[in-house]
Amino acid sequence: MATEAEGTGLVFHPMDQFIVKPLFGEGPIHWYTPTNVTLWMGLTVLAIILVLVVGTRGRAVVPTRIQSIAELAYGFVHKMVEDVAGKDGLKYFPYIFTLFMFIVFANFLGLLPRAFTATSHIAVTGVLALMVFVSVTVLGFVKNGASFLGLFWVASAPLALRPVLALIEVISYFVRPVSHSIRLAGNMMAGHAVIKVFAGFAAIAVISPLSIAAITAMYGLEILVSFIQAYVFTILTCVYLKDALHPHH
């Protein structure tokens, strides 16, 4: 985990930033223990409330800056759901908007120095992805009944190929939550770990300017990635929702 090259004093702890620790004192982590996860998720909620509730309290026709951010986010996700999942997908817009706001704010808050990135944990993204997967599957069967299975039966393919394709489709369907969650967690984890590795190199005076420049560049990329991963997570949720609502391709 930590590697020390003797003599140079180079110490790398790229994964230490992801450790879950109790906020108060030591001891084992029970399911109810307030940990740094709690702290940063709470800050996420606070940030969301700040932008979406406090920022819009004026209800101004000509928006203030924060209100226009809130409206921008609303319009962005609303349009995404409408474009990808269709008009009947708009019913599930609050759910998708919740996901988007949580991921985007957790990602951005995680970029603060010394912060803990909740979305870099498989446990968190896995639950998010599983919630999407389960609800979309249940929704598909409730809305379409058995014809939801038509999603796996590619009617446009030659008859001989269809069972093979159906097998592939089923596998890819069940891989969805895995890739859905690992993509987000992996991206966040990779970026933060790389920044930490560069930060470890800064201990050597000669290459520290280079290392700091690299950290700055990675940080810029991470800001982009934070947004894009939230966007991708949301839009894939919309795509899965579309599959559940209209299973026939």
């Binding site: 992801f18 998720m41 509730v53 706001m101």
Partner: peptide
């Protein structure tokens, strides 16, 4: 070595995640 694979912290994270999501959903 990976904190992400420390299964002892999973119930904690999942619990707080659900609380957070419920809170955000309620506010929204």
């Amino acid at each position: 070595g990976m904190p992400q694979l420390d299964f002892a912290s999973f119930p904690n994270q999942i619990f707080w995640l659900l609380v957070t999501l419920a809170l955000i959903w309620w506010v929204l």
